[in-house]
């Protein structure tokens, strides 16, 4: 699936988007997989309460299932308007 990062999450991880092959069942499982890869992921995901997640462009929670998902995005709380 495609994993996207925005704002300071993108800066901390160092890229806007990557393709990841994963068997993760939930968003939280995917986060754990990423954190185990490299320190920059662990640093970006250190405080999940400071992050929001969207699966297939819909806001959801970290317990959301990933079955059939094509796109997961991580970002800080939004500041539009």
């Amino acid at each position: 699936m495609d994993v996207l990062y925005f704002a300071w999450v993108r800066e901390r991880i160092g890229l806007p988007k990557e393709r990841i092959e994963t068997q993760a069942e939930t968003v939280a499982d995917l986060v754990a997989e990423l954190c185990a890869r490299e320190d920059r992921y662990a640093a970006a995901f250190a405080d999940l309460s400071a992050l929001r997640v969207a699966v297939d462009q819909k806001l959801t929670g970290f317990d959301a299932p990933l079955e059939g998902a094509r796109e997961v995005a991580f970002f800080p709380p939004m500041t539009g308007g």
Partner: peptide, 26 residues
């Protein structure tokens, strides 16, 4: 509309000042 698009539409603001740039916290 204003209340919802401030915190439910995926925009992120970054402020640029002399020599520094900071993401605006929600």
């Amino acid at each position: 509309l204003m209340d919802y698009l401030k915190s439910r539409a995926p925009f992120w603001k970054k402020e640029h000042r002399a020599g520094q740039a900071d993401w605006v916290a929600a």
